[in-house]
């Protein structure tokens, strides 16, 4: 399985990709939303682990784009952020209220800091 890790913090990328690889998956990384979109097109990952606050196309925007695009909406997404889950969901609701298309909740939501075991467990559940 191929997992794309999107985070502007290099430490998070190294950490999460180590967890991913330890669980016998392949990891690819992107450091912002723009790079992530390119990698998704190129590499067709099976799972995206996505940060919320990032430069150049935030996680909020990228999440929306993926979930409203027929080619990508099936890719499961684990949100991994310092921002609380309800804050993230509230931001998506607000965009929907503004007239944009409604989006489903992410397949999983993890708040930083996350334990490696919890992350591994979530990856396993989401891919199942």
């Amino acid at each position: 399985m191929k997992v794309l890790i999107v985070d502007d913090d290099a430490d998070v990328r190294v950490f999460v990709s180590t967890v991913v690889e330890e669980n016998n998956h392949t990891s690819i990384v992107a450091k912002n939303g723009e790079e992530a979109l390119a990698k998704i097109k190129e590499e067709k990952p099976d799972l995206v682990i996505l940060d919320v606050l990032m430069p150049k196309r935030s996680g909020i925007k990228l999440y929306r784009e993926l979930k409203t695009d027929d080619s990508y909406k099936k890719i499961p997404i684990i949100m991994l952020s310092g921002i609380a889950k309800r804050t993230f969901l509230r931001s998506q609701e607000a965009l929907t209220e503004f007239g944009e298309e409604g989006v489903p909740e992410p397949e999983a939501y993890l708040e930083k800091p996350v334990e490696p075991e919890e992350l591994a467990e979530t990856i396993k559940e989401t891919m199942a």
């Binding site: 998070v12 950490f15 999460v16 967890v19 310092g82 930083k112 800091p113 996350v114 334990e115 490696p116």
Partner: peptide, 14 residues
């Protein structure tokens, strides 16, 4: 600090 913490935890894990 959460961001620093994940860096530290991650570092220890790696």
């Amino acid at each position: 600090i959460k961001n620093i913490l994940i860096g530290l935890r991650g570092g220890i894990y790696v």
